[in-house]
Design a protein around this nucleic acid. Structure first.
Lengths: 102, 102
DNA sequence: ATCACCTGTAATATAATTATTACATATGAA
DNA sequence: TTCATATGTAATAATTATATTACAGGTGAT
C-alpha cells in the first residue's frame, strides 16, 4: 500500500506541496489545478498509507476547512528490504472475509 | 517509473526470488505459479526500471535460456527526497513527440 | 435571499494495468 | 518424427485506477 501510494505523479506533487506546509482541500485543488473529487481520491490513498493526515480547522473567515498535513517517513529502500517485507508493502489489508475464504 | 515498478505484489515476489539467485524465465514462472506471458510483462517493467537485468545463457541441456538477475539498488525514501525528485520517480520518459507537442 | 466560499459523495466515463489464450519458432533427446 | 522444454509476442479479456460530472449540504457576509 505504501509503495502503491507513491506510484502516482499527482500524489507525489501533493506530497511536494504539503512538504511546504499544511493546506486545506479546496486550496490544494486550486494550487494543483485539479478537481476536488479527484484530489479527494488521491488524498484518501495517501491517508490510507499514513503518508498524510487530516483534521478539520476553522479558517479566519469562520468556515470549517479540512487540512492535510504531510507525515514524516523514512524508508531505506533496497533489495534486502523488499525481500523481507515484500508482501506488506503493497498488498491491501486482508479482510476477515478473505481469511475465512482461505 | 522506479516506484511504479515496485507497486505491484507480483513484482515484489519476483524481486524476492531473484534475491536468492538468478533464474531463467520458464523456471521462474513455475516457481511463481504464473503464466509466462504475464511474467514477461512484469519482468519488462522491472527491467525498464533497471531493477533487474537479463542475458541469454546456455543450459546444461544445451538449450538457450533467458536469465534474469536482480540489480542492487538503494534509495533513502523520505519526504524530502520526494519533494526534490518528485517528477522523475514515476513519470514515464517523455518522447520526442511529447516535446514537440509542448 | 443571494453570493462566495467550504465539505462530501454518488454515478458514471475513460484510461491504464493486469491477465489469459493462442500462436510461431527453436533445440536436444528418445 | 515426436516429445519436452525453451523463447517470444499478438490479440483479447478482465479488472483496477483515474478522472469527470452532477449533486446535496453547511457557514458567513452583503
Amino acid at each position: 500500500m505504501f509503495l502503491e501510494a507513491l506510484s502516482n505523479p499527482h500524489r507525489l506533487r501533493i506530497i511536494r506541496i504539503l512538504a511546504t506546509g499544511k493546506q486545506y482541500v479546496s486550496q490544494l485543488a486550486r494550487e494543483l489545478g485539479m478537481s476536488r473529487p479527484l484530489l479527494y481520491l488521491h488524498l484518501q490513498k495517501l491517508e490510507e498509507a499514513h503518508i498524510v493526515s487530516s483534521d478539520m480547522e476553522l479558517l479566519d473567515s469562520g468556515k470549517a476547512a479540512k487540512y492535510y498535513t504531510l507525515n514524516s517517513f523514512e524508508l531505506e529502500l533496497n533489495e534486502a528490504l523488499i525481500s523481507t517485507l515484500a508482501p506488506s508493502l503493497t498488498l491491501k489489508k486482508k479482510t476477515k472475509e478473505d481469511d475465512s475464504k482461505q
